[in-house]
Design a protein around this nucleic acid. Structure first.
Lengths: 156, 156
DNA sequence: TTATATGCAAACGCTTTGCATCACG
DNA sequence: CGTGATGCAAAGCGTTTGCATATAA
């Protein structure tokens, strides 16, 4: 049941081109603003906030309206290219979802924000037990894991 | 390692008295406002927002300032009596933590909000594997589980 | 008596909205 | 061309802060 080989499905980073292609495939217009947001996301190494995308775009001479950043992120979320994470601080951030479109979770570096996807490491199985004992009919779960990435762990 | 018997540690609900006692033990003043917040929390059946506490207090003729509600919730969080949950919608809510002061997670009813605590069901163990494979030094994790409680599951 | 906690109102930060304009397809 | 997307600015929320006042211990 546990797909051990699906653990650590790779860095949650992608090129802006991939984003635009996916948007096109989903039937959305490939606009200048969306390209700018896609490029800004491509520059991010880890999780990012709407604010970061906004200023990344500005510093590239590809300014986008604040509202458009939010609208684009929502769109990308719908398409499954990014996903919201709630940081321990309570902040809302986003991470790219790499290639895997399946149910998965994120392992986020608490220093640099770099994130990797992790597959279903067997939590579903654990939760079956919880369901039995609690009587709840479990519908969904969210797991967010925080720690230091290899680079940040060695470099103090 | 897996404490199967600690699954479903009981309803995350308590009487206002327990809250006040714990606050006193922690060396905080037992004020009228905190009593009002404690009572409002006691009325909640599941997760609750600051806004709900505010209006619950008002409808009891024990009005509290909005700011005080936030300050009290932060305090109760510090003491470990309540905990923030990020609902799937992105909303911030709180749940009581019942008796257990250990590391735990919450199983929240997505209809009525009722929540029960679940102990460390073995996720720590799973994450050791993830740490090995990913190279990350895992520091913390948050698991939030949503579903229908027994009552809501049977009553459509 | 004195440090703590409260109330109030204003400030804040993030996110959304309405609406006229723009541009992708 | 026509519809969907954008920009702008204003509104909306939830949350925090500063400060004078009240109050628990």
């Amino acid at each position: 049941v546990v797909a051990a080989d699906r653990i650590a499905t790779g860095d949650d980073v992608f090129r802006s081109g991939e984003i635009m292609e996916a948007l096109g495939r989903a039937g959305y217009r490939l606009t200048r603003a969306r390209r700018a947001v896609a490029e800004a996301i491509g520059e991010q190494r880890g999780h990012f906030t709407a604010e970061q995308i906004l200023s990344a775009a500005q510093s590239r001479h590809a300014a986008v309206a604040r509202a458009t950043v939010f609208r684009s992120l929502d769109l990308l979320d719908e398409v499954g290219l990014v996903e919201r994470v709630d940081l321990p601080s309570g902040e809302h951030a986003w991470v790219g979802c790499g290639a895997s479109r399946d149910h998965h979770h994120h392992l986020v570096c608490s220093r640099c924000g770099r994130s990797v996807g992790i597959g279903d490491v067997g939590i579903g199985q654990l939760l079956e037990g919880v369901a039995l004992r609690s009587g709840y009919r479990i519908e969904s779960h969210r797991l967010e894991v925080f720690g230091l990435c290899p680079a940040c762990a060695t470099r103090p």
